[in-house]
Design a protein around this nucleic acid. Structure first.
Lengths: 221, 221
DNA sequence: AGTCGATTGAAACAAGCGTTTGTTTTGTGC
DNA sequence: GCACAAAACAAACGCTTGTTTCAATCGACT
């Protein structure tokens, strides 16, 4: 029973090699299409290692998702100064979110998490509790500061509008490439997207001039 | 070779029954996890029917996706009067989009298309060409009317902001339920969401008062 | 050196998969 | 009634899947 006490370190033990390879292969192919043989071959380990260390394919998948959410890091534990004005908090949040989506620290980890989110299975609650939920509540708190008098429903929908913009570029980048070609989509780097989403959102909330306007004048109210 | 000339009618022939069942099962389980046996059992047909009519599992999947995009209908061929002001065009577009996403005519058809979009395979180009691309270009044309002087990159990102909001409620409804519970999410019906997205977007574009504002005063500029 | 538990390795297992086969049934024109 | 092609069926095929088995190997401790 070394499975639970084993730290998720990237040492060269068979346990960690299999787990890292599983994250990669599961992210690329999905749970069903990925085979234990491919994972073990990528890890340079024997086929029996999966059942020996993890007890089966599905439990390996869950562990891989857990590892992925650790690799991806959290959104709310960085770049959001608690004493800054709400507008700056929102800017920091969106920038962190878009950057994390657009250029993640571990692409395969993010891919695996997004896969599990689009088709929630037995490992979804892990990603939600540790990764999505804190970010969602942090965003809603920021929006509540910006819009103190808005009712709960509209605040929730406003949060969805922000998250929808942040997520779009990752969830639909392939489709966008199919429509517009690779070049114009590749031209949208994380910084440009983050700046746009911030401005679009702040304008919608009345804390910045609209997108069509010329100069970047601050506040208005 | 009756596969190409066969119309996608919902008659009670074995061909149509298998195709309809395939749409359902593929939408629910995905390509790999769905089995030909389950499809044939749901269709009340023999296992050999798939290879007899379609030539294999993968070609049946492609045909099911094609059928799905027909069932789902297109976005640009309805509810967008060509002579209306741009603001009304955008309102019509978003309302049609959100409604189609939120309460589709055929839930399984929409589910299958969304599945193929999140993991583009051999049938993705069909959905893109016939369903997504026309909608995307229609939206960009409307936005161009609203923002005549915006450069191409920002216009594209603005389009993504609109699409991101429309798609969020379908792509992430399961996750949203996991976070906030089923009730507050279920309370957001298509009409409320569409109204919010329209107002959020128009406010961001400077064609409506911001979300936080009280009354629905029209125009400003 | 010797012993024992942990790990690795190759082979085999049963189950399930998509596909194929050969036959039977059905429908249709003569 | 007969002949023939399309359609439907049950059975089995070959293959891949996840899992199991069991012997070989390694590493530490006495």
């Amino acid at each position: 029973m070394s499975e639970t006490s084993r730290p998720p370190a990237d040492e060269s033990g068979a346990y960690d090699r299999v787990l890292a390879a599983a994250q990669e292969v599961f992210a690329e192919r999905g749970f069903k299409a990925a085979t234990v043989r491919e994972i073990c071959q990528a890890a340079g380990a024997n086929i029996a290692a999966i059942n020996y260390y993890f007890g089966g394919k599905e439990q390996l998948y869950i562990e891989a998702v857990k590892r992925a959410h650790v690799c991806a890091g959290r959104v709310d534990d960085l770049a959001i100064p608690p004493d800054a004005p709400a507008v700056e908090k929102l800017r920091a949040f969106v920038t962190a979110m878009v950057t994390k989506m657009h250029a993640p620290v571990s692409p395969s980890a993010m891919k695996l998490m997004m896969r599990e989110m689009s088709d929630p299975g037995r490992a979804a609650h892990v990603v939600v509790n540790e990764f999505i939920q804190p970010a969602a509540f942090a965003l809603l708190a920021i929006l509540r500061e910006l819009l103190p008098h808005l009712d709960e429903h509209r605040l929730l929908m406003t949060g969805f509008s922000v998250m929808g913009q942040c997520l779009f570029y990752r969830q639909n980048i392939r489709v966008a490439e199919l429509i517009f070609g690779k070049e114009p989509v590749a031209a949208l780097d994380a910084a440009a997207v983050a700046e746009h989403v911030v401005r679009f959102t702040l304008a919608a909330l009345g804390h910045a001039p609209p997108v069509g306007a010329a100069g970047p004048q601050v506040e208005k109210r």
